[in-house]
């Protein structure tokens, strides 16, 4: 009689623990992050993420390089928040316009949404996972560079004075990044919820961000409408609020807009856009 034994019978039953909703949400976020960053995909899918990250981090690296090589650098708070005015803004717009639409549009277009909703996820948890993914992606470009500068300056000995000030600066940076990430996630998801085609969503997001800036400034400066109109500026509003978080009035001609009105504007936009996303998905007929 042979002693041979069959150890691998191919498909087997699974009797171990299941990770439930938490595991499903984690899997959704990890998968969405990988897909958005082009990990495990062809090189062309990596172009935008790499470009976006490069745009946001390169100036920070150069600034730190100069500080290390030639000394100096300022302990001024403006070193951190002013960073949002230029390179981070561009990186964030790229990220919101090119990557956030892929989070929602692709799932609807490929029918993957139906597969997700047949898992422990449901519509609210699916949207929560996508929103968390978007915020993580945006934090990559909004939080990383200023934190890098803060750490670099601190190591060079030109950072904030004392532990208390360092923590305060750190909290301001995190808060600023979260405000920008959350705000633009909500705007990006809302626009992406309107179409199955991510290219259309990308064009719409870019158009909305640019048009809102131009139109609101023209209305306030040329048509002499109230400054509150500027709360409809989808770039100026969160960037100015970031300046206020860092106790700066801001360079965006928002001097007539009190800080509380900016907070109100951001919260209003969040309610409006996230409410729209939920309304759209609540009634969305899931393609089979």
């Amino acid at each position: 009689m042979s002693d041979a034994q069959i150890f691998d019978q191919g498909y087997r039953t699974y009797s171990g623990e299941r990770t439930g909703l938490k595991g499903a949400l984690r899997s959704l976020i990890v998968h969405s992050l990988r897909a958005s960053l082009g990990l495990g995909r062809k090189a062309r899918h990596k172009i935008v993420p790499v470009l976006t990250v490069a745009i946001s981090y390169l100036p920070a690296i150069i600034i730190l390089g100069i500080a290390v090589l030639f000394g100096g650098g300022a302990a001024d708070d403006a070193n951190y928040y002013s960073y949002y005015d230029n390179s981070i803004s561009i990186a964030v717009i790229l990220m919101v316009a090119f990557i956030v639409p892929q989070l929602l549009c692709t799932d609807r277009r490929t029918g993957l949404l139906g597969v997700y909703l047949a898992s422990p996820l449901n519509r609210p948890t699916y949207l929560l996972g996508k929103a968390i993914t978007s915020i993580i992606l945006l934090l990559l470009v909004t939080l990383g560079p200023p934190l890098l500068i803060l750490l670099g300056y601190s190591l060079q000995g030109v950072g904030p004075h004392g532990f208390g000030q360092w923590i305060e600066t750190f909290i301001k940076i995190v808060a600023s990044s979260l405000v920008l990430g959350l705000f633009l996630t909500a705007v990006g998801l809302a626009i992406s919820a309107t179409t199955d085609r991510w290219a259309t969503a990308t064009a719409t997001i870019i158009g909305a961000l640019i048009a809102s800036t131009i139109v609101t400034e023209v209305l306030v400066t040329e048509a002499k409408l109230p400054p509150a109109i500027r709360l409809a500026n989808l770039i100026g509003l969160p960037i100015t609020l970031i300046h206020r978080i860092h106790n700066d009035v801001g360079e965006w001609s928002y001097t007539d807009n009190p800080t509380w009105s900016l907070w109100l504007g951001v919260v209003g936009w969040l309610c409006l856009t996230l409410g729209f996303v939920w309304a759209r998905y609540r009634t969305l007929l899931v393609r089979r």
């Binding site: 277009r109 047949a118 393609r287």
Partner: peptide
Amino acid sequence: ASVRERLGYAPEHHTLP
């Protein structure tokens, strides 16, 4: 969630990622 955890589903459409 606990029901769907033990369900499998194959949709009709062919346009997977």
